[in-house]
Amino acid sequence: MSEGRIALVTGANQGMGKRVAQELATAGLRVFVGSRDPSRGEAVAHEIGSGATAVQLDVTDTASIASAEAVIHNTAGRLDVLVNNAAISTTRTEIRDMAELLASSAPSVVPLDEIRAVWEVNAFGPLAVYQAMLPLLRGSEDARVVNVSSAMGSLTTMADPDFPFHGGFEPVYSASKTALNAITLAMMVEQESTDIKVNLVSPGFANTALVNFQGTDTVEDAAREIVRVALLDGDAPSGTFTQWKGAEIPW
Rank of each mutant, 00 (worst) to 15 (best):
V118R: 11
V83G: 02
I48L: 09
L232S: 13
E3F: 15
A117F: 08
S238L: 05
T157P: 05
D233R: 03
A143T: 11
D113E: 15
R19N: 15
V121W: 04
A99C: 10
F124L: 12
L136T: 02
S176P: 02
G41W: 07
G204F: 04
P135K: 01
T91R: 01
V145E: 05
V83A: 08
D221I: 11
G167I: 12
T62H: 12
W251M: 03
E114Y: 06
P171T: 03
L136V: 01
P126C: 02
P164H: 06
D195S: 14
T90Y: 05
V9E: 06
V20R: 09
L82W: 04
S105F: 08
G215K: 08
D235L: 10
T157G: 00
V198W: 05
A128L: 13
I65S: 03
A21E: 01
A117V: 10
P164C: 03
I6F: 10
G17Q: 06
A222H: 05
N181L: 05
G28C: 04
S50R: 12
N199Q: 04
T216S: 15
D58V: 05
P164K: 01
T208G: 04
L102E: 00
L185V: 13
I48K: 08
E114Q: 09
L137F: 08
T91N: 06
E114V: 09
K245I: 10
H46C: 15
E192W: 13
T218A: 11
G11V: 02
A45T: 04
Y130M: 11
S108D: 15
T93V: 13
A86T: 05
A76R: 03
A66M: 08
R78L: 02
K197W: 10
I65L: 00
Y130P: 07
R92H: 13
L134R: 14
A106K: 15
I95N: 06
E23P: 07
A99V: 14
W119D: 13
P250I: 00
W119N: 14
S39T: 13
D217G: 02
R224C: 09
H46R: 15
L134N: 13
L24Y: 04
D195E: 10
M133C: 07
A87D: 00
A182H: 14
Q14G: 01
M158R: 01
I249A: 01
A106S: 12
P107G: 01
R78A: 09
L24I: 11
A151D: 09
T60D: 02
A247L: 12
R138A: 01
I115N: 02
L200K: 01
A87M: 11
D235M: 12
K197E: 08
S193W: 05
A87T: 09
A128V: 11
V219I: 13
V33S: 10
P38V: 08
E42Y: 12
I183A: 11
V201K: 00
A143Y: 04
F213D: 14
R138H: 11
V201M: 06
S67L: 08
S174T: 02
M1H: 07
N84Q: 04
F241L: 03
P203L: 00
P237A: 13
K197C: 08
A66P: 02
S108W: 15
L101M: 15
G51Q: 07
T157C: 09
G246N: 06
A236N: 10
R30L: 07
K197G: 12
L231W: 02
V81D: 05
N147V: 09
G234N: 02
V129Q: 08
E3S: 15
T10M: 07
V81N: 03
